[in-house]
């Protein structure tokens, strides 16, 4: 009797997880399983699996130049976006960590990108970067076709994305800074540390747990950028901004090669997972305190 009760108590935990699990199953586990399944088939135009081809989709992928280009573009993009958005968020958060008149306005505007849809922002950037009427060229006096020049297009998309992602980073970092005790800065200033020393010896280490978390989230988020590419460059000019997510989209919904798109998705998943695992491994070795 008692044993049964205990057993029920132990397994009742799963009952609580059930609703959440159902949602995950429908929107996450099923599509994921289906993706893996599709990546092993050739499909018809409706995306139905028709012919089992084993690992051929993957083989094709790994021998195609377009895929490698897409990978390189994505890595460069992710590097710029992660660095840019974290720096922007960090600087904004540090600037807003001390109370001053009008701080509300500033914090709101630093956090605002979070609330802007990526496609909307991309539309605005199109106007800003327009070679003839855009404010960038007007102000700098340059004559650059930002979006149509393969040298600048990727950077433009990356900067836009960095700015979009900086809003949430600002929030993370602000919360992290709030967790650092004010008194250690007082002690440091009596100890004789200047502002730079205080930043590198106290602020950065104090942020390290949240810094790590933010880094992981940012990398994942950057890998999944889509809307801004779709609106701003459509992967062009040439293939210069053909990020992997955009390439998946194109393969699936323009070229109707669902098998190849699914294979790319799986590869993207593997990359992101590997990165995340590596970072957690590093973290456990002592970024934290």
């Amino acid at each position: 009797m008692r044993k049964a009760a205990r057993k029920w108590k132990g397994s009742s935990a799963y009952l609580y997880l059930l609703p959440c699990f159902c949602v995950f199953a429908v929107f996450l586990f099923y599509p994921f399983a289906k993706t893996i399944y599709l990546s092993l088939y050739k499909t018809n135009k409706l995306g139905q699996a028709k012919l089992f081809v084993g690992l051929e989709n993957y083989k094709n992928l790994l021998t195609s130049e377009a895929f490698y280009n897409s990978m390189t573009v994505t890595l460069v993009f992710v590097a710029i976006v992660v660095l840019g958005s974290m720096l922007l968020g960090l600087i904004a958060a540090v600037l807003c960590s001390k109370a001053f008149p009008g701080i509300r306005v500033f914090s709101t505007s630093y956090a605002l990108p979070m609330a802007i849809a990526s496609s909307g922002a991309a539309m605005i950037f199109r106007i800003i970067l327009n070679p003839t009427i855009g404010i960038v060229n007007k102000l700098t006096g340059l004559d650059i076709n930002w979006i149509s020049d393969p040298r600048y297009a990727l950077v433009c998309v990356a900067v836009l994305t960095a700015w979009l992602n900086s809003g949430i980073n600002f929030l993370y970092f602000s919360a992290g800074l709030g967790n650092i005790e004010e008194s250690i800065y007082e002690r440091a200033s009596v100890d004789g540390a200047n502002a730079v020393q205080q930043f590198f010896r106290l602020t950065l280490p104090g942020l390290s747990p949240i810094l790590f978390y933010t880094l992981v989230v940012n990398i994942i988020q950057a890998f999944q950028s889509f809307g801004q590419v779709k609106i701003l460059t459509q992967g062009g000019p040439g293939e210069s901004t053909n990020l992997i997510v955009y390439s998946i989209y194109r393969d699936a919904f323009f070229n109707y090669r669902f098998g190849s798109a699914a294979a790319q998705s799986v590869v993207l998943f593997l990359i992101v997972m590997a990165l995340t695992l590596v970072m957690f491994r590093i973290e456990r070795k002592g970024v934290n305190y």
């Binding site: 005790e181 002690r187 200033s189 009596v190 010896r201 106290l202 280490p205 305190y289």
Partner: peptide
């Protein structure tokens, strides 16, 4: 005068130790 220019040492009531060191 800035605290760091005053050349004094202080023990704080709440210790104010650096938590990550």
């Amino acid at each position: 005068v800035e605290p760091k220019e005053r050349g004094l040492a202080m023990v704080f009531q709440n210790y104010a130790l650096y938590p990550h060191m």
